[in-house]
Design a protein around this nucleic acid. Structure first.
Lengths: 243, 243
DNA sequence: ATTACGTTTTTGGCATACCAAATGCCACGA
DNA sequence: TCGTGGCATTTGGTATGCCAAAAACGTAAT
């Protein structure tokens, strides 16, 4: 919807649209701090030590070279995300999730992903669905996933995120990404350890096949059961992962 | 885990635990502002006018009687929730959802609710499931829902929230509540208008029956299809709801 | 040595002041 | 009349400073 006033270009305005790209929005310190802190929190292993991890506003403002104000706003945002909890006159605590919370999140993830699968069967292009196999092209009977857990784990995450994206549902994408961030906090649990890795790949392929076949119910069921399987696994074998 | 130092009470400390309830945390201005603004945003009909609704930090700080600092922190939180979007040097705008965004949210809701239904069949008590019928006890063949749309709509929401709660999954509860808040922004769409109201009640009862029968698959399917039905309805009849 | 009590320090909450960019108004001139 | 330029205003962004509560520390009395 062009502005009517501009239909007639002013004299000194070039007729051809020169490459003006809408100047860099220069994200604010608040957002920079938010991203920086979020990344730092996700990078650290908050379950490594028994005592809670604390953050200090002033220390952060010094290390990031900005005043406390944008830091506090960033903290407020992180608190909304559920990554930290600030206790007045006490400190800012990086939230540690319990096993049951993680299991709970994985279940929600399963719900969202199964809906994504459902939608994909009715809207996605065959080509895009088949492309999902590429995430596992580096694995085969000669190169088993369970022998390269770390690498497979990465492919695993990428696959799931690509899958959800195919639903073309921004809400599903955002919600699952948020959940993933929390779940991945447990880096010991590399989304299905060695023993689960073996069954994971076939299940993924099964999901892809159901999607290609446009079998809505089956795709939904397989996607759901696959992720619920992870939830059950964590619930059963979670003890040693948490302590 | 009582503090060891306090196992032996000091002289002037009463032996009997009197009703000390952990003193009022006196919620901060930041949180008060957050709640106040959130409620205000939800209460207003942002789709009534064509021009975007703007908020002004200074005006808000005056009306709420606090400085801009806690207001800004509250705004930052609301932005995380997706209720507002602040544009530098421009203003704070209350986000308006498009029809497809609302449909998308309802689909995600359907996903979460069907998972809740699934969980309920394996964990909830019969008594609690049956209690879900109470939400509709004021409606019958003599008092049809479609003749009391407003009242039925309230019961409808309450039913869905109670249903999700039965899953005893905090994540599902929180996520759906967030979605509901956004969806309810469209107050014209009172969660299924008159024409949908007629089919709504039987579907609800069908869900309850499946839950009572502990039929996991059926309960999941009915819960999902019911809410997906709403999504389809909005998608089809959404034109007039959105101008 | 241990406990009670008072002082210092730490920490988040809040208010205030200033800045810079974007806008709008208005006068001036072609 | 139209558009050009610039100044005043508006608005979010950021930096600072102070406050009060709570914890940490230290000292003195038993």
């Amino acid at each position: 919807m062009p502005d009517p006033k501009q239909t007639k270009a002013s004299p000194n305005m070039a007729d051809t649209d020169i490459a003006i790209v809408r100047i860099a929005p220069e994200t604010s310190f608040k957002n920079k701090a938010y991203e920086a802190l979020k990344e730092a929190i996700l990078k650290m292993d908050i379950y490594a030590t028994p005592e809670p991890v604390m953050l200090d506003e002033r220390a952060l403002s010094e290390r990031l070279g900005v005043s406390r104000t944008p830091i506090r706003e960033a903290i407020a945002m992180l608190e909304q995300d559920g990554f930290v909890k600030t206790v007045p006159r006490r400190g800012i605590i990086v939230v540690r999730r319990t096993k049951s919370e993680i299991v709970d999140m994985i279940r929600a993830w399963a719900a969202l992903e199964s809906m994504a699968a459902r939608l994909i069967t009715t809207t996605a292009r065959k080509k895009d669905i088949s492309a999902l196999r590429d995430f596992f092209k580096d694995f085969s009977d000669d190169r088993l996933p369970q022998d390269h857990v770390e690498e497979y784990s990465k492919a695993n995450i990428a696959f799931h995120q690509a899958l959800i994206s195919l639903s073309e549902s921004p809400v599903l994408v955002d919600l699952t990404n948020d959940l993933l961030l929390h779940v991945r906090g447990y880096r010991q649990l590399t989304i299905g350890r060695k023993d689960r890795t073996a069954t994971s790949l076939p299940e993924h392929l099964g999901i892809i096949e159901a999607l290609e076949a446009r079998d809505t119910e089956l795709a939904e069921k397989r996607a759901r059961d696959h992720t619920l399987g992870l939830a059950a696994y964590v619930e059963a074998h979670g003890q040693e992962l948490f302590t």
